[in-house]
Computed example of a mutant assay.
Amino acid sequence: MSVSLQTVTEDEADIRLDRWFRRHFPHLTQGALQKLCRTGQVRVDGKRVDPATRLASGQGIRIPPMPDASRPAPLLPAIDPHDRKELERLTVYQDECLIVLDKPAGLPVQGGPGIKRHLDGMLAALRDETGNKPRLVHRLDRDTSGLIVLARTPGVAAKLAAAFRGRAVKKTYWAIVVGRPSPAEGQIDLRLARIGAGAGALTVPAERDEEDAVSAVTDYRTLDHAGRKFTWLEMQPLTGRTHQLRVHCEALRTPILGDPKYGGDAAHPDGFVDRLHLHARALDLPHPQGGRLLVHAPAPPHLKETLKSLGFTEPAAPGPARQAGRD
């Protein structure tokens, strides 16, 4: 086999070189690729690179003769039909670029200590004919229900992840909180910090000059209220910090109903389903092929039950809408 040159496609832009090789040459090990880069046999636009190099559309990758090219790719595990059926049930929108799911409360997005079943592990059931599975591009808390986006390809994943990082995605959440915020609508600008590690880590309000503090901003407005006891809030986080909405609601002295980690006893009044009442209701995001995509998810069963018991009327969730010219 001779040396060849392959061009990075638009869909492959911004992925790492090692992931590009894993996609095109699954038999090549990470160690072998590192050696090929170190010795200059793999180059990008004629320059030496390392496996972590991010690629750009149109770049040329020098491909040397591949070692062990005849070795077959490892066999993929069988697709779990139950996972596929469940993911199809949760799908609210899909096209050739992405999938949007309505994640139920209680399903972890990724694995960890003591977690055997999680969304990322289920995604193998949606592998395409080349063995690639959809990729997560953002996260939701385990106890939060609602919309989460998956990318079908590495290039789309890079574009969507950049959109989430760059605040090009408008996220809308619903929450039932205990108490009534004052004012009824406004903006919470409260820096946050993380203390501890692992499952016991907490997000806490921080002083502006605190070394590890990060900016956290949330817009909120009251949709309805039951006297001063409970309020239905719509919230739009302008930043994406861990547990941001939960801590910001606690800072308003109106903790989210059923919050297992924040709010203390006040978050667990008698007479209600003791689950976190926080739901990712809508996403308005730039579509990788242009324009924008707007998707809504109806309230989950426990939130529906509480809305009804408080006399609140849930509006119907509009169907997905792809709109051109709104980048």
Rank of each mutant, 00 (worst) to 15 (best):
R19N: 14
S4T: 13
T306L: 01
F25L: 05
D189P: 06
K116T: 10
V42M: 08
P286A: 02
G196I: 07
Q6M: 12
V217H: 02
P113I: 08
R241E: 11
L294W: 14
E250W: 09
M235T: 02
A125Q: 07
G121P: 03
R142D: 01
I195V: 14
V149F: 13
G186W: 14
L90A: 08
A151R: 00
Y173I: 01
K170W: 14
H24E: 03
V178M: 01
Q34S: 14
P183N: 02
H27A: 15
Q41G: 04
K133P: 00
R281V: 00
G290C: 04
T254Y: 06
L303G: 05
I115G: 11
D270S: 09
R194D: 04
V109T: 12
D284L: 06
L75I: 09
N132S: 11
P134A: 05
S4E: 10
I63V: 10
E314S: 05
H82G: 02
P318V: 00
R23G: 11
P77R: 00
V92K: 09
S182N: 08
E207H: 12
D219R: 07
L140I: 02
G111M: 09
K47N: 13
D274T: 00
T239S: 12
A175R: 03
F272P: 05
L294V: 13
D219N: 12
S4K: 11
Y220F: 15
H268F: 06
T239P: 10
A69V: 05
S182K: 12
K35V: 13
H296I: 01
A162R: 14
R38P: 06
G58M: 04
R22I: 05
E96G: 08
P74W: 04
A163S: 13
G200C: 13
A175E: 10
L245W: 12
S215Y: 10
L223W: 12
F164W: 11
R275T: 01
R16F: 08
P64E: 13
W20H: 03
H82K: 15
L76S: 02
A125C: 05
G114P: 07
E250H: 06
G112H: 08
L238I: 06
T313K: 13
F25N: 01
V8R: 04
K304C: 13
F272E: 07
T222C: 08
K85S: 14
L283W: 14
A299K: 09
R71N: 06
L140D: 11
P65T: 03
R246G: 02
A282R: 15
R84N: 03
S4M: 08
F21E: 03
E250Q: 13
K103P: 11
L283Y: 14
G227T: 03
S309Y: 07
D18Q: 09
L310T: 10
H24Y: 08
V295N: 11
L36V: 02
E129L: 13
L36A: 14
D120K: 01
V247Q: 07
D45L: 07
A199C: 00
V156E: 07
V214T: 04
G112Y: 08
S215W: 08
D83L: 06
V8N: 03
Q110S: 11
R38Q: 15
A73W: 02
L307M: 06
G198E: 04
D95C: 02
A316V: 04
D327E: 15
R38A: 15
T222P: 05
D219Y: 08
A151G: 00
